[in-house]
Design a protein around this nucleic acid. Sequence first.
DNA 1: AAGTGGTCTAGACCACTCT
DNA 2: GAGTGGTCTAGACCACTTG
Lengths: 227, 227
Amino acid sequence: MLAQALQTRLVAGEWPCGSAMPSEQTLADEHQVALGTMRRALQLLEERGLVDRVHGKGTFVRQGLAGATMLRFFRFGQTAGEVPLSSIVSCKTTAASAEVATSLQLPPRADVIRLQRLRLFDGEPCLFEEIWLPAHRFSQLLKREIGEWHNLLYPFYAEVCGVHVMRAVDQISFAALTAQQARQLKLPAGHPCAVVRRVASDLQGNPVEYRVSRGDAYAFTYSATIT
Amino acid sequence: MLAQALQTRLVAGEWPCGSAMPSEQTLADEHQVALGTMRRALQLLEERGLVDRVHGKGTFVRQGLAGATMLRFFRFGQTAGEVPLSSIVSCKTTAASAEVATSLQLPPRADVIRLQRLRLFDGEPCLFEEIWLPAHRFSQLLKREIGEWHNLLYPFYAEVCGVHVMRAVDQISFAALTAQQARQLKLPAGHPCAVVRRVASDLQGNPVEYRVSRGDAYAFTYSATIT
DNA sequence: AAGTGGTCTAGACCACTCT
DNA sequence: GAGTGGTCTAGACCACTTG
């Protein structure tokens, strides 16, 4: 398939994230196919979320996810598009647990960076996040002061470590808060909470972040459409 | 847009649910466009979930949803594809509450059929459902004995009332069980439960069913992908 | 004005399904 | 073998963006 050949070139990094690809005609010539065929292949890449096509401008390699997407699961009263403040609770390098190693496709007890982060709305804690990152790809992160970190991590990963998050899979379940989690969220221990386990991946499909977010179950909301 | 013109013919009921549409060439002639143009229009209709295209056979108007889809939100130990048994708890005609009338786009206090249904796995109750249907479209339902009802309601709606459910929007939240709900599910009152509010619509986009399903929050699971 | 993607044409050939 | 959708070609013209 032509689209697959194009995707291989793209994933190999031939065109940097955010840059414009060659025009349809140029690519068609390079692959020695008709223009219409190349158009169809590029449309497939757009459907797969790998590129953005803009009429009159060109075809661009996607930049990556913005990162404010966790709040689509909760209603805390924030207005649309508003990003809650973040507070890094802890940040240290450690050995991956079995759960973390499996999720990140790392060998057992591999080095990972472990973050704990609290997200605040109106000064009140609303989300408690634990985040694990493969140490070998994120070492640059530790050279930055905590105060320099952005509220949105994904663009920060791209800027500091060159890691572009292109895709995330969220697994939602439900549990009771432990005493430690409850303390962070200023809720009683045992309070019901929604748990979102996320594995984020880069363009090559390699997992680059494992994140577990917890928030008040009664603030949870989500909509899904079946067709 | 050509696809819109085709969709209008389809929604008007020109080709019955499940039947084959005319071939690409025939449709292209009817609309006086080139074959390739009609192909793309049909591909759009397939992306919108209105038709199924089968290589070598033809293009078919979609039958509607099967209906076993509520269990994609829960893990009760059932094996894949297995449909849990249903037990109708009550069935009566009543006046729509504000919530129900709004969801079904009916005038206030319009006549609706109200069902209560328990879904069972291994003899144990796992889901409690309340279902409201517009009385004017589902009057045939009341002429059937409860024992004749199928476990899957959507194909039953189609068979008995000619109503084909093509699309459903699920709104998920969490709450505590009321005493009555808890009794049905054999759980303690106040136990956390996942609530799925569903509005199901037909081909024309008219809402035809409003359903609220409740199950043990600790059995809840769902996966979503962000791109 | 030049370059881009979006739509459309009028064919050709291939792969699949059914009788 | 007849009929279907799937892929591809080699153009034409239009709409949008930028210098």
